[in-house]
Design a protein around this nucleic acid. Structure first.
Lengths: 230, 230
DNA sequence: TCTCATATCGATACACTGTATTGCTCATAT
DNA sequence: ATATGAGCAATACAGTGTATCGATATGAGA
């Protein structure tokens, strides 16, 4: 039997692990949003059959969980600042930046408990920042309040950003109008306070708006940590 | 040709409008979550062909928008309290209650700008509560901050609620463990602050936790509205 | 009252989804 | 050398959102 008669040896399938799978899924999501992530497309990126992924995840939701946890690694600050306030501020801003890099994160944020290793590490670092400053319950309330704020704020920011992007309007025109619809509604005079806000309000960029609200919330937390002298 | 030979006249299709469609979709979502809402199933509830719905909506996303706006009607308080603080507190709690009645709302909240009639009415009422109390920009910041908080908080609450529900564990066991996973992770000692929080923390019910954080944020807003005397 | 135009509907079709099942193939252990 | 087990691709299924299209019933105009 000559070489010509013998078939080439079958190519072994490219090795796979969760890391590669998650990376492919994130790449897909970064390009086309969460809805662009399908098991088939992720597998295709890895030169694998779709069903092969189910050795590593047992459901598509789990893939999303892995994606979120992967991004949490970007959020985890490299070194811990001493000040709790600075720690929380950095956490909030890093989360926001991650969401701007990966807009799909906004769809997932707060949608499920984050129990992955990186998610837990983020929580640990956050809680640790309060060490010795207050009782456990107060600390919990503080962390929950701040994170509720920035998750909500990030969601809104991304939502608005997408709406602008979809209509192709400039940010200014968008805020002022959202096309004819809002203009017409406001013109009816049925929403005077809203109209005033839209027309008389200053355009502040998203980051300062985010930072301002965050500072307010941090102020509130500070007040609860060190109650004013009676 | 006797009556017996003649077929009955063709039944006219049941009349349809957005209201009916949205009601059917909401019913479906209340029973089985957002993922139970499919164009075919909504149509089936109305004895209509799937394609018929596309005269009233042009995409499934629009159906979701309509659903959210419909629920906003439940949120709109019937009468406006004089106090801005009370107004915002009520808004937050009503939104939370709506989300508890319609868990799918948590998936949609903050996901897209709410430009429907009821959504705008809610915004109007909220802004109106601040009339004359501060400049437009401060008011905007206040409203955005508070709503960011409660959207984030509601999302987390529903997320936890679902996680409990899925495992069938009691709330207590859930918070303590989430099955073996968290227990094992905590046992490694790599997350001391987290472990302390989980084991030493008091179980507070979701509503008080929500209300507490809300009060903190409202305190912060109050401080910005009436700056302390210099 | 008859005819025509228009709006609306149901059926069909398409490309795609997540995942259960099945049987093959190859690497290892005996 | 053979048996065993794991890992994989292929196939299949039920379901999805929505484009297209031909039939049909309704209202307007003569």
């Amino acid at each position: 039997m000559t070489v010509w008669d013998r078939p080439e040896p079958p190519t072994r399938p490219v090795p796979l692990d969760r890391e590669r799978i998650v990376a492919a899924a994130i790449a897909l999501a970064d390009e086309g949003g969460l809805e662009a992530v399908s098991v088939r497309k992720v597998a295709a990126r890895l030169d694998a059959g779709p069903m092969r992924l189910y050795r590593y995840i047992s459901t598509k939701e789990e893939l999303f969980d892995l994606m979120v946890d992967e991004v949490q690694a970007e959020i985890l600050p490299e070194e811990q600042p001493g000040d709790w306030r600075e720690a929380l501020r950095i956490l909030a801003h890093r989360t926001r930046q991650a969401a701007l890099r990966h807009e799909w994160l906004a769809d997932l944020l707060g949608g499920r408990p984050t129990l992955g290793p990186n998610g837990l590490a983020v929580t640990e670092a956050t809680l640790a920042a309060f060490d010795g400053l207050a009782d456990v319950d107060t600390v919990m309330r503080a962390v929950e309040t701040v994170s509720a704020y920035f998750i909500g704020a990030i969601r809104r920011e991304i939502a608005n950003l997408r709406a602008e992007h979809a209509t192709g309007l400039s940010k200014h025109d968008w805020q002022r109008a959202h096309g004819p619809h809002v203009t017409r509604i406001l013109a009816t005079g049925r929403f005077p306070a809203l109209a005033k806000a839209v027309y008389d309000g200053t355009d502040v960029d998203a980051e300062t708006s985010f930072a301002t609200g965050l500072d307010w919330v941090l102020d509130a937390v500070a007040a609860k940590l060190t109650p004013p002298p009676a």
